[in-house]
Simulated assay, not measured.
Amino acid sequence: MALQPSFQRALVIAGKYDAPHTLDVFLDYVCPFSAKIALAIDSVLKPLFAPGGKYDGKVKVIFRNQVQPWHASSTFVHEAGLAVARVAPEEFWKFSLALFAAQRDYFDIPTSTLTPTEIREKLTALVAESVSEDKAAPFKDLVTLKTTPNGGVDVTDDLKYTIKFSRQNGIHVSPTVLWDGLIANEISSSWGEREWTEFLEKKVTA
């Protein structure tokens, strides 16, 4: 699956970009099932696809931002992820894991009394804590509303790209995983090392 060049350093979260096989993983930061599969990616898949791993150079994992608008804060948390991809692309996955770990803070009820500005302030604090304090200011600048009444923020175009990509490929919910461009319905957020190992043994042919 194609990936906008500006995202290659950040959103390819495991493996090498030129690997012949691709896992596209569509995740929402405020989806509990997305959090479960993110942990499996980090603990099971990244070591397998890393230098020296069994599938080094054979498989890559691309993080696909999947905004789910029925969660009121979904837009804000994905803006945050994309802003980190801009200011600290090498820390995108680290921040994503921190955001998944803190996702309950951004659920519907905890954010129901917060303004959009206050939610973005919380996310800026998370960047300072999980990435670095020196990245907090440029991050905050990217997620601050523009001066025009309906102009969005500086990563709005990035957000549009991710949403359009999901829509044109018929992705509706998270997590959704594609193997080499086709939806792999058998993949579950509950998968551990055994299931992923069996899947890869069957699928990796290059």
Rank of each mutant, 00 (worst) to 15 (best):
M1W: 07
A2T: 04
L3Q: 05
Q4V: 06
P5C: 08
A10M: 05
L11V: 06
V12D: 02
A14T: 09
Y17H: 08
Y17R: 07
V25D: 08
V25P: 02
D28L: 11
K36P: 04
L39P: 09
L45N: 02
L45F: 02
P47T: 09
L48D: 07
A50V: 00
G52D: 14
G52E: 14
G53K: 06
K54P: 09
K54F: 04
K54S: 12
D56P: 01
D56E: 10
G57H: 02
K58E: 10
R64Q: 01
Q66G: 06
W70I: 15
T75Y: 12
H78S: 05
E79F: 04
F92Y: 13
W93F: 09
K94N: 09
A102R: 08
Q103G: 09
D105P: 04
D105M: 00
Y106R: 03
Y106A: 03
I109W: 06
P110M: 09
P116S: 13
D134Y: 02
A137Y: 00
A137N: 01
V143K: 03
T144M: 07
K146W: 03
T147S: 15
T147W: 06
N150Q: 14
D157P: 05
D157K: 05
K164M: 11
Q168S: 15
G170P: 12
I171T: 14
V173M: 13
L178P: 01
W179A: 12
S188H: 03
S188R: 14
E195S: 08
E198T: 10
F199W: 14
K202S: 14
T205H: 13
